[in-house]
Amino acid sequence: MSTTASTPLFACSRCFSRHPFEELSPGEQLCKECRGSFPVVKCTYCRTEFQQTSKSNTSSICKKCEANVKAYGKPTACEYCNIIAAFIGNKCQRCANSERKYGPAVTCEQCKQRCAFDRRDDSKKVDGKLLCWLCTQSLKRALARTKQHLSSVDKHKHRSHKSKSHHKEKRKSDMMKSMNSNDSSHNDSQPLEKKSKLNPMQGFLFSGELDPNSSDHVVAMTQLKETIASLQKKVQQKDNELLAKDRLITELKAQNLTSTTELRNEMKNKERLHETKYGLMNSKIQNLLKEVATLSKSARKNNKGGGAKPAAAAAPAPAESGSGTDSPSTN
């Protein structure tokens, strides 16, 4: 009764009955009766746990992300937590709100990524560590499982201890009866009695020292499993990013090859056009040179013929002048 009174109780969001926090479903905070037989799944985008409300609707996307997909399309990876939930910009709504409220992101002590936010309140830390949202949820689940496991182990040990003590008392009574009945049987039963005393202790020491279900072992194994799962998700995301980059590189190479081929063909066409024009200009120059040579030859011939004629015409000039003098007298 003292443990029940000291344990804080929380109300179910549907029937308002009070239960321990571990018995309520994450996200919607429903008790076992309100949850019914519908499974609790993680949202594909924001990774928040929610419960499916009908057997016909088996979608793994929460209602909030469904509305965001309809409004903004499929999201991209957040630059802080790498969760594929960035519908607007390059940050998810959770990281954007935390950055606006608590300042820039800091390094998570669990996953060593810059995706945690310092609330400057030690009571908000989990096990005294400053963790991001994903690591906080993982550690809380691990602690809840460890608590449940320890309670079951304690119950099992309590029952086994009662059964062992009962068997031990029964063996002692049998041994006392045999000792009263016969002395020889007493000598034979003494090592048996020592063996019966040692065996339960040896089993207890073995179960206490090398118990694989101890709390530290379970917590470490749970943390390792969560870390492996998160690393596998990150590796898958990196592989998808590499594939996208490879596709982009291939497309750019194809575009580069196409543009290079077009430029080469254009240069070849221009070279051919230039050679054609160069040939035409050379032929024109040759024709013009031939015409110049022909004209120069004809000009020389004309110059030679024009110089002989004026000398022959100079001799009859006086007769013309004499005839010219007689003409006025006739008049």
Rank of each mutant, 00 (worst) to 15 (best):
T4A: 07
T7V: 04
P8L: 03
A11T: 04
A11L: 04
S13W: 04
S13E: 14
C15N: 02
H19N: 04
P26D: 06
L30F: 01
C31E: 01
K32M: 10
F38L: 13
P39L: 00
V40T: 11
V41D: 07
V41H: 03
C46V: 00
C46K: 00
R47P: 00
T48P: 00
T48Y: 04
T48K: 13
F50Y: 02
Q52V: 02
S60C: 02
K63C: 04
K64T: 05
K64D: 05
E66I: 03
A67I: 04
K70C: 01
P75H: 08
T76M: 08
A77W: 08
C78D: 13
E79F: 13
K91E: 15
G103T: 12
C111R: 03
K112D: 11
Q113I: 05
R114V: 14
A116Y: 14
K125S: 02
L130E: 01
C132D: 15
T136C: 05
Q137E: 13
S138Y: 08
R141Q: 07
R141M: 01
A142R: 12
L143G: 06
R145W: 12
T146P: 03
T146M: 12
K147Y: 15
L150I: 07
L150K: 08
L150S: 11
S151R: 14
V153I: 09
V153W: 04
K155N: 13
H158G: 07
R159D: 09
R159M: 08
H161M: 14
K162S: 11
S163M: 06
K170T: 15
R171Q: 08
K172M: 13
S178A: 11
S181W: 06
N182P: 09
N182S: 15
S185K: 14
N187D: 12
S189H: 10
P191I: 10
G203Q: 13
S215Y: 05
D216E: 15
V219N: 09
Q223P: 01
Q223K: 11
Q223F: 02
L224Y: 09
K225Q: 06
K225G: 02
S230V: 03
Q237D: 09
Q237I: 05
K238I: 00
I249H: 07
K253S: 14
K253D: 14
T260Q: 13
T261Q: 15
E262N: 13
R264Q: 12
K268E: 15
N269A: 14
K270F: 07
E271L: 15
G279L: 03
K290W: 06
V292Q: 13
S296F: 01
A311D: 09
P318I: 08
P318T: 09
A319K: 09
E320W: 02
S321P: 05
S323W: 10
G324V: 01
T325L: 11
T330S: 13
